[in-house]
Design a protein around this nucleic acid. Structure first.
Lengths: 265, 265
DNA sequence: CCGAAACCGTGTACACCGTAGACTTGGGTC
DNA sequence: GACCCAAGTCTACGGTGTACACGGTTTCGG
């Protein structure tokens, strides 16, 4: 057969470990799992920038090029790392009601990203297609299955929740990364931000921004990252609750006729 | 003076172009703006991965190392690229009312990210501190200034809106990137996704996900990316509206006493 | 049973990357 | 005019992803 390591379905085969192993040659001493797991170890310890084919191979006691028997290239390795690092959600422990379940989903996502910050650095090159990532989606969507929302609404809610979680985790990570250089921790961040604004745009630029920062809108000594995250989470879930209520009301009033989703504009 | 290109405030000086030029030596033939602008050109044409110090220098007709007279290193160059590519928002054209203004903010953000997809690939290493990025924040926050929300709520709303916008643009981008390899465009994506699920997990795994995909929850021939984005946007703005209403109601009922933001849990 | 085919892992090589350090050059200040 | 400092050059080093050819090992088909 021709070299099919470039065909698009191959990444799926890798993600799902669906190979025809082809029992001709010698049994490999490595495995895709070991390769990816080793790469994840390095990323956990030193970030994704420290992951190179050479370092992975070295840690496995093997030549660089042998990795290419298991992975088409670095890019696919990174995709596989993301999938493996995601792991399966412990959604059995999550509440079954939609609000508790979605909150648990968001908190678990955030915890995962903060535990493996390098995941925020990998450019996503394809929609989620691996078993673990799909399992997270399923865990979230299943909580929305009996709420009366239609399928498009369910996906929309998931997007908003995931987007918020990623963004918030990314912002917190950016702060922690800046912290060693600037010496300011999370609780002082809001004030440092205000001071930066003052220094750099002491004139009338950004009046609202300056006021918000001074007033502690970006966090002050009384609030930590968890509180900030929980606040936004509650906000989103309140919105979902309102949407579910509107759907129930429409249904009770007698079915179709009500146009679309939320209000226009 | 010692080599201060490593001190944390130096990035601020670069972002704000605040140098003591030091009028001793010859006047430079380059400038920070030219360097960054050239890097942005390359990224626009071929993506951020194609940006290398050598290529930037070559395009400027200069040796690689001369760039280091203007930029401490590649990482800072990327930060500066992000800031420059952001540009100033055209917020004068946005409505002044909070809902219209925020919608315009989100749409303009999305348009920017889709016009320069490489911005989604740059790892954010610090919170927004450049004049352009701060101007975007100011433009959004100013629309929330007279809504009765407190400062923490304003920042929370901004986080949710930005997070959604980035995430949604990133998802669409991931799809478009996968498109040439798979031959499916946006409108067929939902069905392709369903087919992928069927192929890969035809058994009972992901029942909700499979149902949602089959029903067109991930988009079908009747909806494009804009519609999907607008849907989530309206959802978020409805939430903001409810929050503003609650705040107004509290204020009307007579000030303090009402505990926190949205409902608990 | 024995070639042939398939596969594993290796070695070498190439083009490219970021950047450290020593250098030449030329304009501004004293 | 003397001096000095910054702009830009040159060379070099260690590192990166991966193409390609090769020897060794295992299993299958005839």
């Amino acid at each position: 057969m021709a070299d099919d390591r470039r065909d698009p379905g191959h990444l799926l085969d890798l993600l799902w470990r669906t190979h025809a192993p082809g029992s001709r040659g010698p049994r490999g001493s490595l495995s895709l799992d070991r390769v990816v797991a080793t790469a994840v170890e390095i990323a956990d310890a030193e970030g994704v920038a420290a992951v190179s084919m050479r370092r992975v191979a070295e840690r496995l006691g093997v030549t660089t090029m042998s990795l290419y028997r298991y992975v088409p290239g670095k890019d696919d390795l990174v995709d596989l790392m993301f999938e493996m690092a995601t792991g399966l959600p412990d959604d059995a422990a999550w509440p079954e009601d939609w609000r508790g379940g979605l909150a648990a989903f968001a908190r678990a996502s955030r915890a995962l990203l903060l535990a493996r910050p390098w995941m925020l650095d990998v450019p996503i090159s394809a929609p989620p297609m691996g078993p673990n990532n799909l399992a997270w989606m399923e865990a979230a969507l299943s909580r929305l299955a009996r709420t009366g929302l239609d399928e498009g609404e369910m996906v929309g809610v998931l997007s908003i929740l995931s987007g918020y979680t990623f963004f918030e985790a990314g912002q917190q990570l950016a702060m922690s990364r800046a912290a060693p250089r600037t010496g300011v921790g999370y609780s002082e961040w809001g004030q440092a931000y205000a001071a930066m604004l003052e220094r750099v745009a002491g004139d009338g630029r950004y009046p609202t921004l300056a006021r918000v920062a001074r007033a502690g809108g970006f966090g002050d000594e009384r609030s930590g990252p968890e509180e900030d995250f929980e606040y936004g989470l509650s906000f989103i879930l309140d919105g979902v609750e309102a949407l579910i209520g509107a759907r129930a009301h429409r249904a009770a009033r007698g079915g179709a006729g009500v146009p679309e989703g939320p209000g226009v504009n």
